[in-house]
Nucleic acid binder design. Structure first.
Length: 627
RNA sequence: GCCCCGGUAGCUCAGCUGGCAGAGCGGCGGCCUCGUAAGCCGCAGGUCGCGGGUUCAAAGCCCGCCCGGGGCUCCA
């Protein structure tokens, strides 16, 4: 940034306190100051570097900006602190002191409660920066573009703050009802979701149920030796995750997705990425390699956009779906924000983009993708009662595309929470998500899609239209399932909700790590049980045999606590009759079934879902516990 | 980042106002060979997160730090 163009550089910090002590003058030009400790609390600190060519107008602009920010964050004190270390193109001290003085005068004119550290001194400095995303910002003011700061970082974020949101419920009947007027009877989850989104009042103390479940069921666990939010996955978890990954990928490919794979780290200095990167607070993992810095990707967008930019695209190729499932995407969320499988620092995200030639095509594609997402969620095992939809859009977009928005609502088939923004920020004009409302009545977004009208330009992605001219496509960003870990979170929370209703908690059969457990009554039946196991395995069923020297009761109990959908107890009766005694979890009863009937029943339940073999020893006597 | 809670055996946890480190489960050994949710007996297993301090005496109290969970905030 900057370099040859003069910019007034300001690091703006919202501080709990700042403390400085002038030690000695270190420049020929310096202000008078008393050598004592100055301490200012709850203030906005401006570490300011003046470059050659900066002027009074820039100084005033900087103060005006700071004042606006202070008002928004209700900060009452301002500290102006000359800080030469932000530039290699410093103005001479005699000039710099003038610009700093102009800042002070402006602050005085605006009636701000401000303090100014003396110019030209070597000072001891202690800063305690607050921990919110807007607390640290670099702002720079260039001489030729006075109107706005050259960094888009703070602007995008500040706009979000001042942006007005209007909340409605949209119904399949085509009504748009302000949330406060909507009758939520029969839509309790939607009500919880709406409240969650609008009020943000969340006083819950207990640990979410899925966290202890993920450990007890040997799905996943915290890894103390890694960074928080990077989990270890045990065999069952890896299996479940792998099945979900495979399922989503197959569905996307069925819809025409083109699967690619891209690097997980990118050069922070790359021009196309720099801008995107700087739009967000520093939440990346950064890896220094030789003299460069790389960040770990926080979404699949980069790799796909960089591929798309190099593709030879014509309108004939559009719409074009590019797909990748990232294992992993990395976001260095604040430590306090991490929650079990719901919010992680490393997560698996299927992401399918669609390049569309114009808005009409984008709208058609978005409908297809909503259908895809509905199918995926249903296929995983969520019912319509489990999901609530939100649609968010700008006012302008709504006015021009009302019918389209209600088409989406009708496809979902239930009332939908709508958030309407007075103006556009970020890169999309509309996004929708499915949300799951968990045991704590908190919501988490799963599937989502967005209409991006900005990134094609940023990345230089073009196609050639019918007239032979280059155009920027509109890009849709869809994750048909949302993060895979979060899907598992929702499945576990759903199971806990089942338990609370008095049903037996379980995972969908196709995702159950063990679908059938065979329990021989005596050790002499183990060979027969192994034979039966092999028969079931041949039919694409995950089976094991509890051959341990334990009582039948105990082995049944353990199979039940593992949520195994079918438990077969095998003894003399079964051996002679050829009929199995099957304990069916979902129906909470024991049924006599022929092996072929059991196979048929499971095959019907798992349908066309992916199958993977059990990645564990199949004899329980040979199987270690992970914890 | 801030606030709250926690860290004791592999796991889950008890251990009050300071007084010999415990239980259940799991593991190992033995008995039992069992018909739909925990059979019985025995054995092994501990730097009480780390470092200081107070005390005759610290798992416990004090100070500092590390780690984890939750809440706030945030969620491209």
């Amino acid at each position: 940034m900057g370099g040859d163009v003069a910019e007034l550089k300001v690091i703006q910090l919202h501080v709990d306190y700042v403390e400085y002590e002038p030690i000695q003058p270190e420049s020929g030009v310096y202000e008078e100051a008393e050598k004592k400790v100055y301490r200012i609390e709850e203030a906005l600190l401006l570490l300011t570097s003046v470059e050659k060519g900066d002027n009074k107008m820039l100084a005033e602009k900087a103060i005006d900006d700071a004042a606006a920010f202070m008002k928004k964050l209700k900060i009452s004190k301002l500290v102006i602190y000359p800080y030469a270390h932000l530039s290699v193109n410093l103005a001479p001290p005699s000039h710099a002191i003038e610009v700093i003085r102009a800042m002070k005068e402006r602050a005085k004119a605006l009636g701000l409660d401000f303090h100014a550290a003396p110019f030209g001194w070597n000072k001891r400095l202690v800063i305690a920066v607050k921990g919110h995303p807007l607390a640290e910002q670099l702002r720079s003011y260039a001489a030729e573009e006075l109107a706005k700061p050259s960094e888009e970082v703070p602007e995008a974020l500040l706009m979000e703050e001042k942006l007005e949101s209007y909340w409605y419920i949209l119904t399949p009947e085509g009504e748009m009802i302000p949330v406060k007027d909507f009758d939520f009877r029969g839509h309790e989850n939607l009500e919880a979701f709406a409240k969650y989104e609008m009020q943000k009042s969340r006083a819950v103390l207990e640990q979410p149920p899925h966290v202890s479940l993920m450990k007890r069921l040997e799905i996943a666990d915290h890894e103390p030796a890694s960074d928080p939010g990077n989990l270890r996955w045990y065999a069952r978890g890896r299996l479940i995750k792998s099945l979900l990954e495979q399922y989503v990928t197959e569905k996307v490919i069925e819809y025409g997705g083109i699967e690619v794979e891209t690097p997980i780290m990118y050069d922070m200095g790359h021009p196309a990425l720099k801008k995107y990167l700087h739009k967000f607070p520093a939440r990346q993992y950064v890896i220094p390699v030789e003299d460069k810095k790389y960040f770990l990707r926080f979404a699949a967008c980069f790799g796909q956009f960089l591929i798309a930019k190099d593709m030879q695209l014509s309108y004939r190729h559009l719409p074009l779906w590019l797909y990748e499932l990232t294992r992993y995407s990395f976001r260095r969320e604040k430590s306090g924000e991490l929650v079990g499988l719901k919010r992680l620092r490393a997560f698996t995200m299927p992401d399918v983009h669609a390049l569309c030639k114009d808005l009409e095509q984008a709208k058609e594609e978005m409908k297809k993708r909503l259908k895809l997402s509905l199918e995926v969620m249903e296929g995983i095992g969520f019912s319509e009662d489990d999901l609530e939809m939100a649609i968010r859009f700008t006012k302008d977009f709504y006015e021009e595309n009302r019918d389209f928005i209600f088409d989406l609502v009708r496809m979902f088939g239930k009332p939908v929470l709508a958030e309407m923004w007075s103006e556009r920020y970020f890169y999309f004009v509309l996004k929708w998500e499915f949300n799951f409302v968990d045991c704590q009545r908190k919501a988490a977004a799963l599937s989502t899609d967005q209409i991006d009208v900005e990134n094609a330009r940023s990345y230089g992605i073009t196609y050639v239209n019918e007239e032979g001219e280059e155009e920027y496509p509109i890009i849709l960003h869809c994750s048909p399932s949302g993060a895979i870990e979060r899907v598992i979170y929702a499945l576990l929370e759903k199971a806990e909700l089942m338990r609370q209703r008095g049903e037996k908690p379980m995972l969908p059969v196709w995702l159950s790590p063990i679908q059938v457990r065979i329990i021989p009554i005596k050790s002499m039946y183990v060979p027969d049980c192994v034979k039966l196991m092999e028969e079931l395995e041949k039919n694409g069923i995950r089976v094991d045999v509890d051959d341990r020297d334990e009582t039948v009761d105990k082995r049944i109990r353990e199979a039940e606590t593992e949520w195994i959908p079918y438990i077969v107890v095998y003894g003399e009766k079964e051996k002679t009759s050829g009929t199995l005694s099957v304990r069916i979890r979902s129906e909470d009863k024991i049924m006599a079934m022929k092996p072929e009937d059991l196979i048929a029943k499971i095959r019907e339940e798992t349908g066309d879902k992916p199958f993977k073999k059990l990645p564990l020893p199949k004899l329980l006597s040979r199987r270690p516990a992970f914890r």
